[in-house]
Amino acid sequence: MKERLEQLKQEALQKVDQATEVQSLKDVRVEYLGKKGPITEVLRGMGKLSKEERPVIGQLANEVREQIADAIESKQTKMEEEALEKQLEEESVDVTLPGRPVQVGGPHLLTSIVEEIEDLFIGMGFEIKEGPEVETDYYNFEALNLPKGHPARDMQDSFYITEELLLRTHTSPVQARTMGHKNGKEPVKMICPGKVYRRDTDDATHSHQFTQIEGLLVDKHVRMSDLKGVLNAFAKQMFGEDRDIRLRPSFFPFTEPSVEMDISCKVCGGKGCSVCKGTGWIEILGAGMVHPNVLEMAGYDPEEYSGFAFGMGPERIAMLKYGVDDIRHFYTNDIRFLKQYHKA
């Protein structure tokens, strides 16, 4: 009986091995493992065996059964895998063909710059404030220590609508308005980005409309060294850790002392080159300590409160950072220009 089982096993395994399609495997299963198959028959004839032989043969028969079943199983898996592989091979695509395009838009370069600056100052605890683009003469000039007839009004020739209304020439009126809301008590820590307008003929370096970001901090004991520290943090984050800043005296009617901030030239590292006109420095922004007249007009006691303010032009920063050579690029919306800076 042992021999018989061994022989059945050999036969079955050979058939499994020779099978080329799933159907032949099924046939083998029915032929050898089915209810009427030879192994079942062997098991049925076990009654004739001795008590000692019975468990031995029974175990052997089961083993043979399992071995055949396993062989069928693994052969079947192998055949299925081969079939799938063949199918997938047939389904393959030319991966070098172009994909279906997705419409991707992006922000304007100026927006990217403005938001970058906003986020930078938000990180230092500043709020973002906005205000009207058509301003009163009072908020645009007078509240900023520029009374009527002040010579510095020449510096910013303006688009007037009436004698009392004009397109704001800077975003400083937002500062005056914000301070005015505090009743001379609470501190102010804000930046105000926005569009501003001046009577300039459009050319490579002038635009009758441009963008400004101004900042203001008013509190007790605000020091000029704080201004220097904040601007330094800004410059390093915006332009790179390796850039230095310097302040040099300047004049703005709404600040005293007034300074301009330069950063060291990236191109030459401060040695002097054509980009920085040989000075090693590039002008970035104007700043200063808030003029006591401005504080007073906004209701603050300049003996108790002090503050600093600064203002910069995102167009200029974009021009420096990306080498944009003509300010008009920011307003013609040439798609080829805009797309260039979507990663900016």
């Binding site: 838009g105 397109l167 009758h208």
Partner: peptide, 11 residues
């Protein structure tokens, strides 16, 4: 949605 931001003149 696939749009590019433009900035135009107010005047």
């Amino acid at each position: 949605a696939g749009l590019d931001e433009a900035i135009t003149y107010s005047l």
